[in-house]
Design a protein around this nucleic acid. Structure first.
Length: 489
RNA sequence: GGCCCUAUGGUCAAGUGGUUAAGACACCGCCCUUUCAAGGCGGUAACGGGGGUUCGAAUCCCCCUAGGGUCACCA
């Protein structure tokens, strides 16, 4: 069996879309699972919309996800170049051949003419497609058009009455009628190949064995197969993956939420969460386990378990997955990711001393289970920075006015006095001793202290809070709160 | 509109003629607990409709319905 070679072929006209990322992931998993080769090809034949910046961003985001490639931009390979605008010579050669064999022809209809015709057909309820007007122009007629300065495109002469069969690896056998396909453009008037054309030429040249792509390309496939036949080439195997839908079951779009993977990265989603989530959209593992890192996905990935139905993007599940990875990643890493958000929010200075860094780690440790993405961490840390807090609600003061409070506070201050190393563990011990020593239930000890320390009835673990704030701030915060609640000290 | 794809709980989905129709997210409840979370345990909830085929259909066939894709000198 020939070596498995797959490709991901984005067009650099915007950021890496979440759907594109999944297509890339499935290709990558398929290649890695089968000891195949992953090719990255840049389809930049749309000069108007392609930008170098988009290309850079797409490559960056693929890398961020952990998807690498064996051939393509940056790494080269036996079939270089891997950028379509650098392959124009190759395409030209085949265009000559197709033209010579009369499998393609020059068409001089202007875009406006074709568009008008299209509209007329649409209005009549007909299928819009090229009429074939220039199909049989004589040499002389062609010459005249040229003389008139008309721009030419090259169209493919679609054979009539042919049944085109796509043996799709996920969809099974799909049949199309060639009569439903108009003579499509191969080479645009600017001399650049269209997608369907360049795609076929490149896939063949690059010896791509399997084309895994989004379902929106299923109806392009018969055109491409016709081209393979015209060129006398064996087509690759095709597998069309169903689309990812927005929550309202329509196509995902900018309006309906975040569609670019960079948006997820910016919000503080971890790449392994995004990958794990994407893998689960349209593919299902064999067992009941659903948490997988990239290499585990490689072990389990199987094209036969890719589903045909479109999948709705379930943000809640992504958040859950991300939360899971946030809770289970090394604290050092989460802290590194969290610090920029904390700096941006003004909680931290641009430069941190080693001591501050250690302190921030404690902060992150005590709140990391709350956020579903790292950026949300800023919503939970105010309690560690803001000494001038107000009571969340007036009723909370009554709890500070309870009769046992002065004793509890006194006991705490005394214990703090005797403690040199105020770790979370030490604080926990102190709290427990107070509760025991005063023979008071937890609620009578912990709730007043929590309120006095934070102005709120809920928040991080009390012992961690105390350790993180340190003796001085604990004392001053409590004194201030008691004063505010009118409790004599 | 033509062509094509799809159809199991709110969502992702397992299932490939005989199952009490898995599991996960979400939701609800209980437990744990010094709060909120997290975690543990449990619960509600599904085969779009109609015809066939068959002793027997979520599973096979047809029709309908619904959703989606595509019909560009965009990819």
């Amino acid at each position: 069996m020939d070596k498995i070679r797959v490709r991901f072929a984005p067009s650099p006209t915007g950021p890496l879309h979440i759907g594109g990322a999944r297509t890339a992931l499935f290709n990558w998993l398929f290649a890695r699972k089968n000891n195949g080769v992953m090719v990255l090809r840049i389809e930049d034949t749309d000069l108007e919309r392609s930008t170098e910046e988009s290309e850079r961003n797409i490559l960056r985001d693929l890398k961020w996800l952990g998807i690498d490639w064996d051939e393509g931009p940056g790494v080269g390979g036996p079939y270089a170049p891997y950028r379509q605008t650098e392959r124009l010579e190759i395409y030209r050669e085949y265009t000559e051949r197709l033209l010579a064999e009369e499998k393609a022809y020059y068409c001089f209809c202007s875009e406006e003419e074709v568009e008008e015709e299209r509209q007329r057909q649409l209005a009549r309820g007909e299928m819009p497609r090229y009429s074939g007007k220039c199909r049989n122009l004589s040499r002389a007629e062609q010459e005249r058009c040229r003389q008139e300065g008309r721009q030419a495109v090259v169209r493919f002469r679609v054979p009539s009455g042919e049944k085109v069969v796509v043996e799709d690896l996920v969809r099974g056998r799909v049949e199309f009628d060639s009569d439903g396909i108009g003579d499509f453009v191969l080479v645009k008037s600017d001399g650049l190949p269209t997608y369907n054309y360049a795609c076929v030429l490149d896939d063949y040249q690059m010896k791509i064995s399997h084309v895994l792509r989004g379902e929106e390309h299923l109806s392009n496939t018969p055109r491409q197969i016709l081209l393979y036949q015209a060129l006398g080439w064996e087509p690759p195997k095709f597998a069309h993956i169903s689309l990812i839908l927005a929550e309202d079951r329509s196509k995902m779009s900018k309006r309906k939420g975040d569609v670019a993977v960079e948006q997820y990265r910016d919000k503080g989603y971890l790449p392994e969460a995004v990958v794990n989530f994407l893998a689960l959209l349209g593919w299902s593992p064999e067992g009941e386990e659903e948490i997988f890192l990239l290499d585990e996905l490689v072990q389990r990935f199987d094209l036969n378990r890719v589903s045909r139905a479109p999948a709705v993007f379930d943000m809640k599940k992504l958040q859950w997955l991300n939360g899971h990875y946030i809770k289970n990643s090394p604290l050092e890493r989460i802290t590194e990711l969290a610090v920029p958000y904390l700096q941006k929010a003004g909680y931290l200075a641009e430069e941190l001393t080693p001591e501050e860094w250690e302190w921030v780690k404690m902060v992150v440790a005590s709140v990391r289970e709350y956020p579903s993405c790292i950026s949300e961490i800023v919503e939970h840390v105010d309690v560690f920075f803001n000494d001038e807090f107000a009571f969340e609600e007036e009723g909370l003061k009554e709890i500070l006015q309870q009769e046992q409070v002065p004793q509890v506070v006194e006991a705490l201050f005394a214990a703090l006095e005797d403690t040199t190393d105020l770790t979370p563990e030490a604080a926990k011990k102190i709290l427990r001793n107070i509760s025991k020593g005063l023979k008071l239930g937890g609620k009578k000890v912990f709730m007043p202290l929590r309120i006095a320390l934070t102005g709120s009835s809920h928040g991080p673990e009390l012992n961690e809070l105390i350790a993180i704030l340190g003796k001085e701030r604990v004392v001053s915060r409590i004194k201030r709160s008691l004063a505010l609640a009118g409790v004599a000290q």
